[in-house]
Design a binder for these strands. Structure first.
Length: 925
RNA sequence: GCCCCGGUGGUGGAAUUGGUAGACACGCAGGACUUAAAAUCCUGUGACCCGCAACGGUCGUAACGGUUCAACUCCGUUCCGGGGCACCA
């Protein structure tokens, strides 16, 4: 009987499906474990071998936890709204819903092929009205909430209204929103409804406002900061410009500190935490007000407010720099400088985001105005330069050339005299950024180190009322609307310019079907073309849709209770499944998805809907699998190809060859000729009658013809081999190339395992004989190793432990049922199909999925003696078997009497003999 | 520029707490079985040196230096690769 993986895998996949083996019940009496994969965006390209890496590891872990007695939630779904489907619709005239569903079907087939244990009854699709009804519902909760800084939590807006009605607003610091002008309770009560709503809008966690947004003309929509890479759109690489537009926002800035603090409670990789910390970008310093002096007629005695993290360097200020977009530019620029300043500001504004970021040349222009130093009354020139960004801090800085490298270079470039506040440490060659150098030439700060001086300086500012301590963040409120069709509609209707939230019973607001998807007028989305849908009795519907991250910010909650029609998720059920214990996915979601879902979780927690405020307890980022491309060399200007070894003799062009046409490095040139018409008449210069390709590791991508489809691998070797091979490739979190060569080894291993049970000629091999000590030892050693490796996600060493086990059992000619049966349970998470087949062959009648993971016992593993490496002066010279209970003295005796040792110590007296039990012996001469 | 991760045979990688570097697998070489092939099995395989042989020696984990009886592992400096952040004041 041979190992016929095709039949076996098909058979068990349908059996498991038929018997609902993967159905998960919310069983409160069992300990729970929640394993989650980042759900995929169902792209038209389908899965390549890189995608399942994370899914396989989470699948193994889920199955392992189940064998360990946990009730394991391991669901899958689709992040199905998004730009590519809409773009595809525009290009090909196929409705996003149609292409999305096709793509999902295709994904599902590919996933099923690999034998995952997902409970598909819990599948969610973000584009399903039964799902996005609750996305809209959560949006309403955010709309109907504000951030209470005093209590440091989100609260229903009713509590804010209550504050307004009873106290009014006198201190914006406590109750958020810097733009609201203080009012008394009497004033509030006298405001009309529209005015009240306007004020409340400035507090809502989901709010509508005007602001500079990242507008992408080609995509016809705004983008969040995390959707822009190097100044162009993440999807498509299109240019992005700043534009002032009405948009919805999420007030994520209020959560900045909690998003930072929460990182200490979760188990994410250091680099992942670092990325999030960078994104939040918290810094501490001071805001300082400077008196201005200018001949400009528009000047209204405005003050210049700067933000600095080094207020201690106040006596080193030699000039000020404000951003070209700064509102003071026009008010302070002098007549003499006006023309030049305008010219400069215009050139800067014309540049795209990308060009400005790439700009490394120092540029700037003097405004002609001066600021007055608050302590020594020195006149400080005010400059305008693009190196100061309008979006950060106050858009203005105090420049300290002796203490900041950029300021230093700027001063040098424009020959601005530099004040030295670091004495002999500063030698006019570079700025002093160290915080271990005491200040000089700094009045009341002289002799102090920065840490102390910062505090003293801030106190002085506060005393003189010219500045204060200030914490700054890079993070901005997240744009939450898109001028697009394929997304969740907002449950908002506009009436007389006021946004009115729909009632819960009006949800879901269905996405209307649309014949042709095209942008509306004035940068509005396609929905604005649907006049009948837009205009309703109560007003005008919001025509924007929600961004891609809306649905993915809370999907992990919906899996817990996916069919609930009255709640987004039942509280009791959410209390049972709680946080995701293990989340596996790619690094590309480090700042976007993870920050948003962390924020949503905190909101839902604050508002009392769930009992935890961090969604993911542990996060693992699987590495990327790179493509191993094959290159052919065409002699320049001809249709003749030269084998890799000879290419240096010619002038050649490199062409990517489809990896399926190449065996190892050897090109099948007959198939190659048929591949594309232009190669039909190609000729070849061969080496030893073969054509060898070159190789290159790069991203797995269609355009390099290096994409390997898991379906093909599964077809050739089976899902079990595929699963184990992906794991065997290397550590989960590491990037690695896909190389099909090694897969044979894993496949051989499964065949070898099979032969422990069945002989090709003789058939059934196993016996019910009692195992020997040696056989028990092999088994228990393996149980221990597999348990340890699986627990620490070291699946590659786990696979090799199985190989060692099967090799040893083969050497021992062990076919004992007692041993083999236990081994199958260990293997079941890694290779479920073959394990189930052999499990039933042994006579079991209940699925191996419901077995219990065996426990290893010390007595089978423990040794009475060990073969110690014996080193002389640290170099291992021999091995001696010594009883484990031997004392230091006994060991010394044994070792010193050994012939080889005697030879090496040449009669010298050892200084010291180091003996570490169970490790080694070292003789120091 | 700053931060994080990494660098081990021809290849993927192992070494979990400082204790026999190179597990396991691929590849390669030789052999067995076979008329032959496939499949399977066995042996060898870091480099170098000595040798009839060895269960002989030297070197060896990017480079250099340090700590230690002992370093892939800890510390310092440098180089290289990958990722993130970035005129962020």
């Amino acid at each position: 009987m041979e190992y016929n993986f095709r039949n076996i895998e098909k058979k068990w996949q349908s059996e498991w499906k038929k018997n609902l083996q993967y159905k998960v019940a919310t069983n409160f009496s069992l300990p729970k474990f929640y394993v989650l994969d980042m759900f995929p965006y169902p792209s038209g390209a389908g899965l390549h071998v890189g995608h399942p890496l994370g899914y396989i590891s989470s699948d193994i872990y889920s199955r392992y936890k189940r064998l360990k007695g946990f009730n394991v939630l391991h669901p899958m779904g689709y992040d199905a709204f998004g730009l590519p489907a809409e773009q595809y619709a525009i290009d090909h005239g196929i409705h996003p819903e149609v292409s999305t569903n096709d793509n999902i079907d295709n994904f599902r087939k590919q996933l099923d092929n690999i034998g995952f244990c997902y409970d598909w009854e819990r599948e969610v699709r973000t584009c399903d009205p039964n799902y996005y009804k609750w996305t809209q519902w959560i949006f309403l909760q955010l709309f109907d909430a504000w951030y209470n800084r005093k209590k440091n939590k989100a609260e229903p807006i009713a509590t804010l209204i209550n504050i307004f009605e009873t106290q009014g607003v006198n201190n914006n610091e406590v109750h958020c929103s810097s733009t609201v002008i203080p009012f008394s309770k009497e004033e509030w009560n006298a405001f009309d409804e529209k005015k009240k709503m306007e004020i409340l809008m400035q507090y809502r966690l989901a709010y509508c406002g005007f602001g500079e947004v990242n507008w992408c003309e080609v995509l016809g929509t705004v983008l969040a900061n995390d959707e822009i890479i190097n100044g162009v759109s993440e999807r498509g690489g299109h240019p992005v410009v700043k534009r002032k537009l009405r948009q919805w926002y999420l007030r994520i800035t209020e959560f900045a500190d909690r998003l930072l603090d929460g990182l200490d409670k979760v188990d994410f990789s250091e680099s992942m935490k670092e990325m999030q910390r960078n994104w939040v970008g918290k810094s501490s310093g001071a805001e300082i007000k400077f008196q201005l002096q200018t001949s400009n007629k528009n000047f209204q005695n405005n003050k210049l407010v700067v933000y600095t993290t080094r207020p201690d360097t106040i006596f080193g200020v030699d000039f000020m720099v404000i951003a070209p977009e700064h509102e003071l530019v026009n008010k302070i620029v002098t007549e003499e400088q006006k023309q030049e300043v305008e010219k400069y500001c215009n050139t800067v504004k014309k540049k795209s985001e990308r060009e400005r970021m790439a700009e490394k040349k120092i540029s700037g222009i003097s405004s002609g105005a001066f600021a007055i130093h608050p302590f020594n009354c020195k006149k400080i020139p005010v400059w305008i330069s693009e190196y100061v960004l309008i979006g950060y801090g106050t858009g203005a800085i105090m420049a300290v050339p002796s203490g900041d490298q950029r300021d230093f270079l700027f001063a040098k470039h424009f020959s601005i005299p530099i004040t030295n506040i670091f004495g002999t440490h500063f030698i006019q060659e570079e700025a002093i950024v160290s915080n271990a150098i005491a200040l000089e030439n700094s009045d009341f700060l002289n002799g102090m180190f920065p840490k102390q001086a910062i505090q003293v300086a801030i106190n002085k500012f506060e005393e003189k009322e010219i500045g204060r301590h200030k914490v700054n963040y890079k993070i901005h409120d997240a744009v939450f609307s898109r001028q697009r069709y394929w997304g969740e509609p907002f449950p908002i209707v506009w009436k007389d310019g006021t946004a009115i939230a729909l009632n819960e019973n009006q949800l879901p607001v269905l996405l209307p079907s649309l014949q042709e998807i095209k942008p509306g007028e004035d940068g509005e989305g396609p929905l604005s073309n649907l006049i009948a849908w837009k205009n309703i009795d109560s007003g005008i519907r919001e025509v924007n849709t929600m961004p891609g991250y809306a649905g993915s910010s809370w999907y992990f909650l919906r899996y817990m209770d996916p069919k609930n029609e009255t709640e987004f998720c039942n509280r009791k059920i959410a209390d049972y499944w709680e946080q995701v214990d293990l989340y596996i996915g790619g690094t590309e979601h480090a700042v976007g998805h993870l920050l948003y879902s962390r924020m949503w979780t905190k909101c839902l927690f604050d508002l009392g809907f769930i009992s935890f405020d961090e969604p993911f307890k542990k996060l693992i980022n699987q590495g990327k699998i790179g493509g191993d491309s094959r290159i052919a060399y065409r002699i320049h200007g001809t249709n003749q190809f030269v084998s890799a070894g000879l290419k240096d003799n010619y002038k050649t062009d490199e062409l990517h060859v489809d990896v399926s046409l190449v065996d190892g490095m050897e090109l099948n040139f007959e198939s190659f000729k048929k591949w594309k018409p232009e190669f039909a008449n190609a000729t070849f210069i061969l080496e030893s009658e073969k054509y060898f390709c070159g190789a290159r590791l790069e991203k797995m991508s269609k355009r390099y013809f290096n994409v390997v489809n898991p379906d093909d691998v599964v077809d050739k070797y089976g899902a079990d081999t595929f699963r184990m091979y992906e794991m065997f490739l290397g550590p989960l979190e590491q990037d690695k190339p896909w190389d099909t060569k090694g897969i044979e080894g894993v496949h051989r291993f499964l065949k070898k395992l099979w032969r422990l049970f069945f002989d090709n000629q003789k058939g059934k091999q196993w016996t019910t004989e009692k195992p020997t000590d040696a056989e028990w030892k092999v088994l228990h050693k393996t149980i221990k190793k597999i348990e340890e490796d699986t627990e620490r996600f070291s699946f590659n060493t786990g696979v090799s432990a199985f190989m060692i086990c099967v090799n040893e059992l083969t050497d021992l000619k062990c076919n004992k049922q007692e041993i083999l049966e236990k081994l199958l349970i260990l293997l079941a998470p890694y290779a479920p199909h073959i394990s189930e087949e052999l499990w039933f062959a042994l006579g079991n009648t209940n699925s191996i999925l419901n077995a219990s993971f065996p426990t290893w016992e010390e007595k089978y593993i423990s040794e009475t003696s060990k073969t110690y490496p014996v080193a002389i002066n640290g170099k291992t010279r021999t091995e001696i078997n010594i009883d484990l209970n031997a004392t230091q003295q006994q060991v010394e005796e044994i070792v010193l009497n050994n012939e080889l040792v005697k030879k090496w110590i040449e009669g010298k007296q050892p200084k010291k003999i180091i003996y570490v039990k169970n490790k080694m012996v070292n003789i120091v001469l």
